[in-house]
């Protein structure tokens, strides 16, 4: 449970910058704002749907900055040819949400 988050600090900084550029409201990004960014990856919609399922940990239809980092992490890995897992591996769960 105290394993380091797989999202490295330098990656987190990059993802946080993207998060901020999308105009979060109250520290959250709605699906409407995140969807075009993920679609921009050109990954299949069913894969992106799974990325969302895994990232929106509290299932409120919004992503906070840690959830957004999980989404971006999964998208980048998918673009590198790795498959998106069916459930979120514990090391991918943000430390703030364990």
């Amino acid at each position: 449970a105290d394993a380091p988050w797989v999202v490295k600090p330098e990656e987190k900084m990059k993802f946080d910058a993207i998060f901020e550029s999308l105009g979060p409201v109250g520290g959250m990004l709605s699906g409407d704002k995140v969807k075009p960014v993920l679609l921009n990856s050109k990954l299949p919609v069913d894969i992106l749907g799974r990325v969302w399922e895994l990232s929106d940990l509290d299932r409120d239809g919004m992503l906070d900055r840690d959830e957004f980092s999980v989404a971006m992490f999964l998208v980048y890995r998918a673009l590198e040819g790795e498959s998106v897992p069916m459930s979120l591996p514990p090391p991918l769960v943000p430390p703030s949400k364990r």
Partner: peptide
């Protein structure tokens, strides 16, 4: 499979 029923919070569904 995604959970069925209710309003989805997933913008890709």
């Amino acid at each position: 499979q995604y959970p069925a029923g209710g309003s989805s919070t997933n913008p890709f569904l």
